[in-house]
Nucleic acid binder design. Sequence first.
DNA 1: GGAAAACAGGTGTATATACTCCCAATTAGG
DNA 2: CCTAATTGGGAGTATATACACCTGTTTTCC
Lengths: 154, 154
Amino acid sequence: MPPAAAVPSPSASPCTCSRLRRAARAITQLYDVALAPTGLRVTQLSLLRTLQRRGPMRIGELATVNLLDRTALSRNLDPLAARKLVAIVPGRDARTREVTLTRQGTAALASAAPLWDHAQRDVTRRIGRSRLDELYGVLQEIEALHPSPAGPIA
Amino acid sequence: MPPAAAVPSPSASPCTCSRLRRAARAITQLYDVALAPTGLRVTQLSLLRTLQRRGPMRIGELATVNLLDRTALSRNLDPLAARKLVAIVPGRDARTREVTLTRQGTAALASAAPLWDHAQRDVTRRIGRSRLDELYGVLQEIEALHPSPAGPIA
DNA sequence: GGAAAACAGGTGTATATACTCCCAATTAGG
DNA sequence: CCTAATTGGGAGTATATACACCTGTTTTCC
């Protein structure tokens, strides 16, 4: 055999963005595997949780809170609406539509909670609480790099 | 003033994965805006760079190096192949296909380089070199969480 | 040397994400 | 009040990402 069919190591790219994306891919796998029994992805769980924490919201509002493009969010809701985990009803302003967590959505959250918790604990154990806290700080600064109209929140 | 129709702030989710994804979305925007004149996305630039650094590679190899699913990578190559920035030719082993950077690909890299550099400098300036270096350390550990067969590289 | 295992890739499908363009409803200005 | 600007959202399109399943090729191993 020639010197090495060795496992190619991820070449350290100097690009902050690529590194972040790579790490995001990796950790998404971990959470999605953990959540698989619920049929929820971590992205979906995240949306349901926002609704639980903050109550019914308009589409655009939910998008802003999650730093997601409005149209992207709209599409992310499709599978959740299809499974009736959220309901989308017209708001008082005839332009708007309100997203609400349904009873099934709440139930799905409840059943996903321990699985999420397990994954989160696993990550915390393996990375370490303090390093994670540092990480969160930097990530928040990075979010502020988003060229969105929202800008820094006074 | 009533409490606030204020700009909804991104609610701090306790989920490491969601936070990483959010930050990745935000910073991706920054790089993609910077690279827009070249018609390259940061994801595409990243692939071209890997090819430049490491030379022609098989599909699966390029996927592994980038911690990307093989089929995802395969599809990511489509727009690059369509623009003839990469060429995909059969390898010696009749099962394999080799991806190579074309002359146009090299040219595209050259024209994107200063734009990427500007974005990267901007990020470095705003976040700070030392914090970025810390970040890279944690991100690397997070990559190791990937439930891939590659596992830790001895 | 032939059959089973291992390997490299592709296709179908589903979700995630963002941009551009478009429409309807509301609000601002006069 | 009426028009123009603003706002909320949808549809079309393109890329990014992964899984399950399938096909063809090479290796292994007897």
